[in-house]
Simulated assay, not measured.
Amino acid sequence: MMIPYGQRITPDDRTTTSRGLMRPRPGGRALRVAVATVLALWFALPLVPLLLWAVANRWSFPAPLPTAWGVDGLVTALEQGAAPAFGRSLLLGLAVAAIATPLGALAARALTRGIVPAPRLVSALLLAPLALPAFVAVMGLTVLLLRARVPATLAVLLLLVAAALPYTVYTMRVAYAAHDLAYEEEARTLGASRLAVLVRVHLPLVAPGLARAAFLAFLVGWSDYVVTVLVGGGSLVTLPLLVGSYAAGVGNEAIVAVLSLGAIVPPLVLLLALGRFGRRYPTARFTGPTPSRSPKGSP
């Protein structure tokens, strides 16, 4: 019996046949669907007020629904530069992911293979941004960047890459801990070049880990507020800065709702794409009982 490619088998939804093979329980899939539906509703409930505020021109207490419907919040948000801010945040998140992901992968590979001197010290330095308060770390590094005359946009990018490295390094260390070098060694034995092994063997095997690391790095750049406002000094206006500025005022609920919904879209799209991408890699295959090994000395 063979489980379809890509199907996940868990202990709660499989039974054992008379031949010792594993097969899914009939109610296991229904249970997973029910749990997923409940979780989706749980996370979607906080978005309901945002959706209502986004299409409300007026919502007076104690009315349960908006008293005047419209898109004034969307129009005002666009007039105040929501579209350019959205584009800057998107580019910033993509740039952080493009730099932090390969750096984290290289560091994680070196640490996993034990080719780094003082690996514990190096790991502590890479994870240090998580231990320090964001405000303290930013203020200390800002002084150095200002004295080095680094442009504000580049300084923001460098600091966000440093903030994203702990996430990419940790994610890739988990991926490399389960990575089997035998595949690469076998490819080299068969005559493949280093580039061919990297492109056709190594990268496909660690692709799910790279995707997860890139997603986390993107979130760091996309949702940042502290680094952008302190280091950027207002020269780099991103979507989180607009949300914070309007949320600090009174009567801007519709604008804040529109901006907040816009901030949810890219991470949600990437999360769905990441889940879809992960299904391409099977987590278990059951093709039958494991053949017994021959005793020593037998042919």
Rank of each mutant, 00 (worst) to 15 (best):
T171H: 12
L157T: 12
Y170D: 05
G114V: 13
T112L: 05
R113W: 06
T153Q: 04
A82N: 08
Y170E: 07
L78D: 04
A124L: 13
A128H: 00
P62F: 14
L125P: 06
V156S: 02
L111D: 05
V122R: 10
L165W: 04
A164H: 00
F86T: 11
A105S: 15
A178S: 15
A118C: 06
A182N: 02
R173K: 06
F86A: 04
A148V: 08
A110T: 01
V71M: 15
A107S: 07
R120Q: 10
L125N: 05
V116S: 11
R109A: 14
A124H: 11
L181Q: 14
A63C: 01
A131G: 03
A137L: 15
V96P: 03
P166S: 09
L78W: 01
T76F: 10
G114T: 01
P166Y: 02
R88H: 05
R109K: 02
L159N: 00
V75Q: 15
S123Q: 12
A134Y: 09
V150H: 00
F135L: 14
D180T: 10
A118Y: 02
A128V: 06
R149M: 02
L90W: 05
A107D: 12
L92E: 12
A100L: 02
L146S: 13
A177P: 03
V71H: 02
L154G: 10
T153C: 11
L158T: 09
A83I: 03
H179E: 14
I115T: 08
S89E: 02
A107E: 04
L154Y: 04
V71A: 09
V71Q: 11
A85Y: 01
P64I: 08
P151W: 00
P117C: 08
R109M: 11
R113A: 14
G93H: 04
P102C: 03
T76S: 10
L146W: 07
L94Y: 00
H179S: 12
R109Y: 08
F86V: 08
L90I: 06
F61K: 00
L103P: 06
G87T: 04
L132Y: 15
A178P: 13
L106Q: 11
V169M: 06
Y176F: 14
R147M: 13
A128C: 10
F61Y: 11
L141W: 15
P84W: 11
L165C: 09
A110N: 05
L160P: 10
G93R: 06
A164V: 03
L126M: 06
F86I: 07
A118S: 12
A95Q: 05
T168G: 03
V136R: 03
Q80Y: 05
V136Y: 10
V138A: 09
A124N: 08
P62K: 01
A178M: 07
L158S: 07
P166C: 08
A118W: 00
R149T: 04
L157P: 01
L157Q: 02
I115E: 07
A83Q: 05
L132S: 03
V138T: 10
P62M: 12
S89I: 07
M172G: 01
P133F: 07
L78I: 11
